[in-house]
C-alpha cells in the first residue's frame, strides 16, 4: 500500500517561488491565489490533493526551509 504523507508549511517563511511544485510528481501542492498571501505579500504553498506520499522532495527543493514533511509509519 502507498504510504500517506502530508506537509506543513511555515506560511510566513514561504516566498511563493514555486520550486516545490516543479518537483512534485503527484500535483499534491499548489500556490495560493494572488489574493491569499502572507504578511510579506507572497502567495504560499498549500496542499490541494490528499495523495501526498511524504517523499520529501518538495522540502529538499525549498530554498526557505518552509516545508516540514510527515509520513505515515507502518504498524506491526
Amino acid at each position: 500500500m502507498v504510504k500517506k504523507g502530508k506537509i506543513e508549511v511555515r506560511i510566513e517563511h514561504c516566498k511563493g517561488c514555486g520550486l516545490c511544485l516543479t518537483t512534485c510528481k503527484l500535483n499534491a501542492i499548489a500556490l495560493s491565489t494572488a489574493d491569499v498571501t502572507n504578511s510579506s505579500g507572497y502567495p504560499y504553498v498549500i496542499m490541494i490533493n490528499e495523495n501526498c506520499t511524504g517523499c520529501t522532495m518538495c522540502a529538499i527543493m525549498c530554498p526557505d526551509q518552509a516545508i516540514d514533511v510527515y509520513r505515515e509509519q507502518e504498524h506491526s
Partner: peptide, 18 residues
Amino acid sequence: MKKVYERNNIAFDMPSPY
C-alpha cells in the same frame, strides 16, 4: 504521522534573507 523532514535549527526561525 511521523515527522520525516524538519527545519534545521542552525538556521534562525526567520524567513531566509534571499
